[in-house]
């Protein structure tokens, strides 16, 4: 009886898997179809007449390498910036004692979910005033304003015995050395997975690029893809799907390698 019921639940769960993944499968498959095939045999997963033509058309219409580089460069700045600031701040919160610690931490962490509309106008004005519109640093800076790293690193530091750090401090070893030679090597898996999450989020970021990047040569992949989607209909879907397929390779690849660590860090972000 119980076995029977468990089977029923599995059917539901497998259906959810299909609903979540089939769109992506069709996207990849249709990106290798001609426009005509994508209409007449849209549900055919293996293309009847596989073709690279959508990819070559994209290559002629837009500067793919430049788009990929822009996106990568922006995401790399954001990731490095957030990792470095987050590690230092987490270290201070974990191993230094100072006045008002709890309050400062509370303020830092509360900023995580501040809606972007509350800060977008002043940030746009600042970025334009310091002449960083249409640049990677200009679109990266507002994204670095995120204290998630502190929260995740603090959680990761829980597994390092506090007594170890205390005894190193008593032996007169400097905080820089402890951070460089003890904390960072021990936290390597966490740093990689947190970095991977930051990178993927920034790779997909839409809001700040829309506001800061107006010049086509500074576009990132999500903005380029948006240009292929027409709200009045008439989107060339195989073309848009080819660009999307290019876009998802990087996050998918990162997930394939670091899947276990990434899921662990995501879990930690919700734990107390």
């Amino acid at each position: 009886m119980n076995k029977f019921r468990e089977g029923g639940w599995h059917i539901l769960l497998l259906l959810i898997c299909l609903v979540l993944l089939l769109p992506v499968v069709f996207m990849i498959s249709n990106s290798f179809k001609t426009l005509q095939d994508s209409y007449h045999s849209m549900l055919q997963i293996i293309p009847l007449h596989p073709t690279f033509s959508n990819y070559t058309t994209l290559g002629r219409q837009i500067d793919l390498l430049r788009l990929i580089w822009n996106t990568f460069f922006m995401a790399a700045i954001v990731t490095l910036g957030k990792l470095i600031t987050g590690l230092f701040a987490a270290y201070a919160f974990k191993y230094f004692s100072f006045k008002g610690k709890k309050w400062i931490y509370l303020i830092f962490v509360s900023t995580i979910f501040v809606p972007f509309t509350v800060i977008m106008i002043p940030n746009y004005l600042v970025i334009s005033k310091i002449n960083l519109l249409n640049t990677a640093p200009g679109v990266a800076l507002p994204q670095m304003c995120d204290a998630t790293g502190i929260m995740l690193f603090l959680k990761a530091m829980d597994k390092i015995p506090k007594s170890l750090i205390e005894s190193l401090k008593i032996d007169g070893i400097s905080s820089h050395m402890i951070l460089k030679d003890i904390i960072i090597p021990i936290l390597r898996p966490s740093i990689i997975s947190i970095g991977a999450i930051f990178f993927i989020n920034s790779w997909n970021e839409y809001v700040w690029p829309t506001l800061i990047l107006k010049d086509k040569s500074s576009f990132t992949l999500p903005l380029a893809l948006q240009n292929y989607i027409s709200s009045e209909g008439g989107t060339n879907f195989p073309l848009a799907m080819a660009l999307s397929t290019i876009m998802i390779i990087v996050p998918l690849f990162i997930y394939l390698i670091f899947q276990r660590y990434i899921l662990n860090s995501i879990s930690n972000s919700g734990l107390k």
Binding site: L21, Y206, L221, T235, M241
Partner: peptide, 27 residues
Amino acid sequence: KIIFFIPSLFSLVVGAMLFSWIMNPIS
């Protein structure tokens, strides 16, 4: 857990494109 998480890796612009295809009233 591993499978459900996969769409979280993708841009919402990709999601928007996919749904405007899936739900396109003509094609």
